[in-house]
């Protein structure tokens, strides 16, 4: 199963449309998609608009590959569960977000072993082909918690220490 997710704020039909077309060309592709506020019918995707965090995590766990916008919830959950994730950054020019910060997120997060970045529909299709043909693992899971230095800085702050 492929799990696609675009978050809750704005639609991201460029990603879902491309995935729908790709799924239509496959012999047997099962794609479950969290579509947010999309008004479009995607014939080759099984869609739900929103999901509770626990359901979201279950879907990531069950999926072979995750496809999503470059949102940190998607990237971190996939990394925690050691799943390959293909991310397509939202673009402000297409009305997909208020700014282009997802481009910066994607260019940094592609350094993670489980992350592939697709800039556009063509790259998405290529990345899907690559991810679905992989049989090996994807670099394992990351720790469920922040880095020790951040945890101790937050803990020190709570206990009244100076953060500077």
């Amino acid at each position: 199963m492929i799990f696609a997710t675009v978050g809750t704020q704005l639609p991201f039909d460029r990603l879902l449309g491309a995935l729908d077309s790709w799924a239509g060309c496959q012999q047997r592709a099962s794609v479950f998609a969290q579509t947010g506020r999309s008004g479009v019918d995607f014939h080759n995707l099984e869609c739900t608009p929103f999901m509770a965090p626990s359901m979201f995590r279950d879907a990531v766990e069950r999926a072979r590959v995750i496809v999503g916008h470059a949102g940190m919830g998607t990237i971190l959950t996939a990394a925690e569960l050691g799943k390959p994730v293909i991310i397509m950054p939202r673009r402000a020019a297409f009305g997909e977000h208020r700014n282009d910060h997802q481009l910066a997120t994607a260019s940094e997060m592609r350094k993670l072993p489980n992350v592939l970045v697709a800039e556009d529909e063509t790259q998405l299709s290529e990345a899907l082909g690559l991810a679905m043909s992989e049989t090996s693992g994807h670099g394992g899971c990351i720790s469920p918690y922040a880095s020790p230095d951040l945890l101790s800085a937050v803990s020190d702050f709570i206990r009244g220490g100076r953060a500077e």
């Binding site: 469920p144 918690y145 922040a146 945890l151 101790s152």
Partner: peptide, 12 residues
């Protein structure tokens, strides 16, 4: 994503 990051601070 904000919530996922908040939960990652839990040990602190």
């Amino acid at each position: 994503g904000h919530w996922v990051q908040l939960l990652r601070l839990a040990p602190a």
